[in-house]
């Protein structure tokens, strides 16, 4: 899996390419940690280039949602495709991770004032 990082304001977009699975979760987690340390307020995982998502990756995404408290920022998924979109729906990940269809919509959410 390839991960490319883009910073836009206080948001960081991770463009993910390939398979997000147990085999490459170390790469993914390292990229997420870098983003956290960089102090981003909104971590956007661009899923458009992700072809496959296994059960292990679903757990990592859920863990990520739990480890990013609302007071520190938010994590969201961007534009998952076909099979990956189906898996996210079946696992109900959209209940704990917002899913956006476009980068503009995701970034617009970043600009909204946080609750409280």
């Amino acid at each position: 899996m390839q991960v490319t990082e883009r910073r836009i304001g206080q948001s960081i977009i991770l463009d993910l390419m390939g398979e997000l699975s147990y085999a490459n979760r170390t790469t993914f987690k390292a990229a997420v940690e870098r983003s956290k340390r960089a102090g981003c307020r909104h971590l956007i995982l661009n899923m458009q280039g992700v072809r496959f998502l296994d059960s292990s990756a679903i757990g990592i995404l859920a863990l990520l949602a739990q480890s990013f408290p609302a007071t520190q920022g938010m994590v969201s998924l961007l534009n998952p495709q076909s099979y990956v979109k189906e898996i996210i729906t079946l696992a109900n990940l959209h209940q704990i991770l917002p899913v956006y269809a476009s980068e503009q919509d995701a970034l617009a959410e970043s600009r909204l004032p946080t609750a409280g």
Binding site: A62, A65, T89, A91, N92, Q95, I96
Partner: peptide, 9 residues
């Protein structure tokens, strides 16, 4: 039915 796995919430 649509539901989260154990431990997600």
């Amino acid at each position: 039915s649509a539901s989260l796995p154990l431990g997600f919430d």
